[in-house]
Design a protein around this nucleic acid. Structure first.
Lengths: 223, 223
DNA sequence: CGGCATGTTAACGCGATGTTAATAAAATAC
DNA sequence: GTATTTTATTAACATCGCGTTAACATGCCG
C-alpha cells in the first residue's frame, strides 16, 4: 500500500516498485487509504506523513490496530526529530526523508521484509488469484475473509499452477515433481486433486483450471 | 556490540545504551571486534564504517557469515549513496548518519529488534497469547492472575509456537530444534506435549493449536 | 462406434495424530 | 543416602483425515 497525495511522485513510485516485482496500490488520502486497507490485503505500507483528510500518523495508528505485525515506512519532507519519535512510538519501522533515492527505499523494504516474521511475498509464497489469496507457507486459501486450509498435496499442486499462471504445465512435470512417479494411478490422483481445486475456486468465475488434452493444465486468471 | 574508533563518541554511546538497559561491549577497531565476536555472544551490532585495521563493511561481511541473522546498523559520517547500497547488499539493517540523535538510534534498534526473529534479550521474552501471558524466561504461563509453571520442554515448545504465531511451523523444525532428533518416538513425544499445551489453553477458546496434517502445527490467536 | 483421456464422486485403508496412563529417569527434598 | 516429587519417554488405544483407488460419467478423436 502506497499513500501519497503528490500524484507525480506517487505514480513514479508505483511504476518503480512494480518494475521491481511488487504489486502496488496507490491511495491519495488517509481516509480512503484506511477503508482500502480494511478491504484489501496488504503486506507492507508506505505512507506519506502529510496527507489530506487523515494524516499519516493517525492512519498508521489505525492500521497497526488492525494488524500490529504489518511493516510501515513513512515518507516525510520534514526531518523533525519529534515527528520521528512520534512515528517510532507507533511502531513504524523506518523513515525516509524526501527527497529520497528510490534504490534506498527498495533496500529498506527488503531489509525490513528480511526481518519480518510475515511470510515474504518477495519469495513468492503468497499468490493473488482473482479474488483469492493463496498463502503457500500456511497452506491457506482465503477469499472475502473466508479461510480454508489446504492439504499438503493440494497446496503443492496449487503452487505449481500459480507459478505457471496463465501458462500450461505438463502433467508429467507435475507428477514427477509432486508424486515422484508418473504412472496411471498417480495420474488419476492428480485428476482428483484438480477437481478439488476447481471446486474451491468455483465462487469466482474468472478463475478456471483448464485442461489441455494429453498435455496438462492451465490456471487461468481473467480478473 | 559497538565498534567505534572515536572513543569520546564510543563511551558516550555505551553510557547511553547501558542506561537504556542494554549490555554493551565496545571495540575500537575491526580486527579485535571480529575476534571478540567469535568468542562472545552478541545479539546486535552497531558498527562504524571507518575503522582502523578492518573497515566496517568487511567486518559486517565476516560477521554475517558467522551469523546471517544478526542485526547490523552502520554509523557513517558520509551519506554517500554508494556506501549505503554497499551496506544493504551485505544485509545491513539500517544506516545512521553522524551526527545523529541518540533517541533516534534507540528507536531504530527497537524497530529492528521488534521485527527480529531472535529472542530479544533486552526485554525478557514475554508473549501475549489471547488472555494468556507467557514468560519464557521464567517458564510461566499466566491468565487472570492464575499462574502455572511450565516444564522446560513445554516452554521451549510454546516459545517456538509463539515465534511463529498464526503461521505453520513444521514438525521437523520443532523436533530438530528441541528434541535434536526426528525419529518416531520424538515425534510421539511432541504430540504428547502439544496435547498438554492445548489443555492449558482450553480456558480461552480464541486460542487453538491446530494440526496441519503431515506438516506441523499452528498456534492460532483469534483474540 | 470404440478406445482413451479426463471429470467427478464416493469408499476405503492406512498412516498420522489425540489422549491418557504407565514407566523410566532425573531432580529435589529431607 | 534414601524418599519424594517432578519430568520426559514410551506404550496403548482411539480417532481422524489424507491420499489412493474404484466406479461411473462425459467428451474427444480416430
Amino acid at each position: 500500500m502506497l499513500v501519497e497525495d503528490d500524484l507525480n511522485l506517487g505514480f513514479l513510485l508505483v511504476e518503480f516498485l512494480e518494475l521491481k516485482g511488487f504489486s502496488v496500490k496507490l491511495y491519495r488520502d488517509g481516509q480512503t487509504a484506511f477503508t482500502g486497507f480494511q478491504n484489501g490485503h496488504f503486506d507492507f505500507c508506505i505512507l506519506d506523513v502529510m496527507l489530506p483528510k487523515m494524516d499519516g500518523f493517525t492512519l498508521a495508528k489505525k492500521i497497526k490496530i488492525l494488524n500490529g505485525q504489518i511493516p510501515v515506512i513513512f515518507l516525510t519532507a520534514r526531518s523533525l526529530k519529534e515527528d520521528k519519535m512520534k512515528g517510532y512510538e507507533i511502531g513504524v519501522d523506518d523513515y525516509i526523508t524526501k527527497p529520497f533515492d528510490e534504490d534506498e527505499l527498495l533496500y529498506k523494504i527488503h531489509a525490513i521484509l528480511n526481518r519480518s516474521k510475515l511470510p515474504k511475498f518477495s519469495e513468492e509464497s503468497i499468490f493473488q488469484i482473482g479474488l483469492f489469496r493463496f498463502d503457500f507457507q500456511n497452506q491457506q486459501l482465503e477469499m472475502d475473509g473466508q479461510k480454508r486450509r489446504l492439504t499438503e498435496r493440494e497446496s503443492s499442486l496449487l503452487k505449481m499452477l500459480c507459478l505457471n499462471k496463465n501458462n500450461v504445465i505438463r502433467r508429467e512435470q507435475i507428477l514427477t515433481a509432486i508424486w515422484g512417479d508418473n504412472d496411471y494411478f498417480a495420474g488419476r490422483s492428480l485428476d482428483v486433486f484438480i477437481s478439488k481445486l476447481r471446486k474451491y475456486f468455483s465462487p469466482d468465475p474468472s478463475i478456471s483450471i483448464e485442461n489441455v488434452p494429453k498435455v496438462g493444465f492451465i490456471l487461468q486468471d481473467n480478473s
